[in-house]
Nucleic acid binder design. Sequence first.
DNA 1: TTGATAAACGGAGGGTGCCTCCGTATAAAG
DNA 2: CTTTATACGGAGGCACCCTCCGTTTATCAA
Lengths: 192, 192
Amino acid sequence: MNEQQRKPRSDGLRNRERLIEAAKEVLGQGGPQASLEAVARRAGVGIGTLYRHYPTREALFQAVYRHEVDQLIKLADELKNAADATEALRTWLHAGVALVATKRGMLGALAVVKTEASSSMYSELSAQMKLAVGQLLHRASSDGTLRTDINADDLLQTMYAFCYARQPEPGWEAQVLRLLDIFLDGLKLQET
Amino acid sequence: MNEQQRKPRSDGLRNRERLIEAAKEVLGQGGPQASLEAVARRAGVGIGTLYRHYPTREALFQAVYRHEVDQLIKLADELKNAADATEALRTWLHAGVALVATKRGMLGALAVVKTEASSSMYSELSAQMKLAVGQLLHRASSDGTLRTDINADDLLQTMYAFCYARQPEPGWEAQVLRLLDIFLDGLKLQET
DNA sequence: TTGATAAACGGAGGGTGCCTCCGTATAAAG
DNA sequence: CTTTATACGGAGGCACCCTCCGTTTATCAA
């Protein structure tokens, strides 16, 4: 039963990557009903290739979302040892807003379909996000530059709240970043 | 400048009606992205006719919604002189739930697009709903069978809350009616 | 009644997207 | 350099979107 497997083909892997990248852009802009053929075109692959790798729209959404969260986890890891812990936190949150910008398009679709597969994935990824921001927050508050009466959940909630409070207008992203910065300033302890 | 107008053609009026009726069914089932050609087919008219009367998907949605609310207003008027005021209120609220069932599919679309045209219509129709239920409520509470510490807004809010709390599952409508009935029972004053 | 004509009808047509299927190309293994 | 498991791409069939325009028909005036 131990069938020996070939190594996955390099072109296959490459195209998976390209599709995720293209989907992030196209779906981020055009919303959940954007054309999958446009995604394939942007990735420079045939439509058949897209469907082979991601048989359903939903599968593609999930892959994109998971990929984005992975990036954020990685980013948190890189920032773990940054000189300025508060600044690191700010950087990470800004990246988080960008994630929401991508996810924004997909959320509707996920909410409508609401497979138990998708919702379990959603909560799993949420937990990972919380851990990631928790690391950064802990360092920033334990070195005495940040208030200690706020936790990872509070921070993520705040970020989401800002994002969803002002979504429709174009330019909302910059606004949200501004508000988030102000909030972070409020978290800083004054060293008199 | 006082151009004399012909009377609107009877077939035109008839088809408008039919389209609304068909749209209510098709969109109520298939959600906001349902096929407009299916609507035209169901109404037994050509696709061109649909587009002439309702040039955009949004226009059709609005017309359906407005039509539904008009029905509710009319219903409230009919029930105004019913023997049992509380029962009349119950009947009306049940009809209201049916409206939400129709609207459900469209709400998403309206929320996404959010023209100021659509949102102003939305608030206008909300106000009308409030007036309608207000009539019925007033009569039921002033004849001493219902508590007086509840207003029209409370009642509509409650209805919406029940509807949106349990939407996705099939059979939700019956559940909501049951909960609503219980709530109404709670409003009744005991005549000891 | 009977034209005249404004109004409404319907569906063909051109464009796009969905998804499947399968002949062709190619990376990995021997 | 073969062999062969994998992956590729796009044609094809279907549905939908929306527009355009030749045809039909309801209204009105004579």
